[in-house]
Structure formats: structure tokens, C-alpha cells
Simulated assay, not measured.
Amino acid sequence: MPPKNKTKKTTKKNTEKSNFADEMVDIFYRRSVLDVAVLQGHIALQYESVKKVQPDRIDLRSRMRHTEQKLQHERQDHRDVNSDLSRQYKTMQTELTNKVKRMEKEVSQLTEELVQCQEELSKEKREREQVEREKDATIAKLQHKLDNMETNYEKILHENLDGLTSQLSVARQGWEDKSTTLHQNKELLPVFGLNARHI
């Protein structure tokens, strides 16, 4: 059997420990009750806040859905605009390419026509120069003939004039001889009693 002294001490210690543990449990319990009360207060506040925020949340969700739909529409519109612009760009690019090809073809044709016109112009110039040379040669030839004819006509004219002058000189001499004879005969008329006016 154990000694008695020891038993009393142990019981006393156990009692003290038990009281201390009870106090601690009581403190923890009270503290837990306070914590629960505080947490319940927090929960009540949060519930009230949630209750107040709930309509705003619903409104925000509705607005968010509306904004998402609007964004979807805008994205679709953006895609449609991009698609339309891309189509227009391709159409314009095709038209521009066709126009460039047409214009290049026209430029090529016009260049060919220009070359042909330049060749024709060059040919015309050569022909005109040839005609002018021939004309100048003909004019020079005709001028030479004209000069020769003029010289010949002058010679003929001088010869004829000289002949005419000599003939006139001979005729004059004849007239002067006749005139002298006539004057002499006129002077003799009064001798015969004739008037020269009546004859």
C-alpha cells in the first residue's frame, strides 16, 4: 500500500489541476461564445450588406450582360465592317490592276502609233525635202531658161530696133526728099496762079 501522505498530495494536485482546467474551459467557452456572437454580428452585417448589394449585383449583372451583348454586336459589326472593307479593297485593287493593265496596253499602242507617226513624219520630211530639191532644181533650170530667153529676146529686140531705126532713117530721108520737093512745088503754084489750099 502506498503511503498516505502521497495520496493526499496527489489528490490535492489533481483537484487544483481540475479547477484550473475548468476555469480554462470556462474562459475558452466564454471566449468562444463572444467569438460566436461577434461572428454572428459580422454575419448579420454581411448579410445586410449582401441584401443591400443584391439589387446592385443583379443590376450590374444585367448591365454586364447588356454590355457583353453590345460588345458582341460591336465585334460583329467590326467584323462586318472589316469584311466589307476587305471586299471593297479587293474590288478596288482588282479594278485598279485592270485599269493599270488597260492603261499599259493603251500606252503600248500609243507608243507604237507614235513610232509609226514619227516614221511617217520622217518619211514625209524626206519626201518634202526631195520635192523641194527637185522644185528648186526645176526653178533654177527655168530661171536659167528664162534668163537665156530674156537675153535672146533682148538681142532680137535690139536687132529689130536697129533694123527699124535704119528703115526709119531711110524712110525719113525719103520723106525729107519728098517734103523738099513738095515745098519747091508749092512755091511754084502761085507763079501759075494756083492756091495751095485749093489743091
Rank of each mutant, 00 (worst) to 15 (best):
H42K: 09
I43W: 05
I43K: 07
I43Q: 06
A44P: 11
A44T: 15
L45T: 15
Q46D: 07
Q46E: 10
Y47I: 09
Y47P: 01
E48R: 13
E48F: 13
V53Y: 01
V53E: 06
V53D: 05
Q54N: 06
I58N: 01
I58R: 01
L60S: 05
L60C: 03
S62A: 13
S62T: 11
S62W: 04
R63P: 00
M64R: 08
M64A: 11
R65F: 11
R65M: 13
H66A: 15
H66W: 12
T67N: 11
L71A: 12
L71S: 10
Q72H: 09
Q72M: 10
Q72V: 13
H73G: 14
H73R: 15
E74V: 15
Q76E: 04
D77T: 02
D77Y: 00
D80I: 00
D80Y: 01
V81I: 04
V81E: 00
N82A: 05
S83V: 02
S83C: 03
D84H: 06
D84Q: 10
L85P: 01
S86P: 01
R87M: 02
Y89L: 11
Y89R: 10
T91Y: 05
T91V: 10
T91L: 10
M92G: 13
M92W: 11
Q93E: 12
T94H: 06
T94W: 00
E95H: 07
L96K: 03
T97K: 10
T97F: 04
T97D: 08
N98I: 02
K99V: 04
K99T: 05
V100N: 02
V100G: 00
K101N: 08
K101D: 07
M103D: 14
M103G: 12
M103P: 04
M103L: 15
E104G: 01
K105P: 01
K105V: 06
E106G: 04
V107A: 11
V107H: 06
V107F: 06
V107E: 04
Q109R: 11
Q109V: 10
E112D: 12
E112V: 13
V115D: 00
V115W: 00
Q116R: 09
Q116V: 07
Q116H: 05
Q116W: 02
Q116N: 05
Q116T: 08
C117Q: 06
C117L: 09
C117R: 06
Q118E: 05
Q118A: 03
Q118R: 06
Q118N: 04
Q118Y: 02
Q118I: 02
E119V: 09
E120Q: 10
E120N: 06
L121W: 00
L121N: 01
S122E: 05
K123G: 08
R126P: 01
R126K: 09
R128M: 13
R128S: 11
E129R: 09
E129I: 12
E129Q: 12
Q130M: 08
Q130R: 07
Q130A: 12
V131Y: 00
E132S: 09
E132A: 10
R133N: 13
E134V: 09
E134W: 03
K135D: 07
D136M: 13
A137N: 13
A137K: 12
T138L: 14
I139M: 11
I139Y: 08
Q143G: 15
Q143W: 07
Q143P: 04
H144P: 02
H144K: 14
K145P: 02
D147A: 15
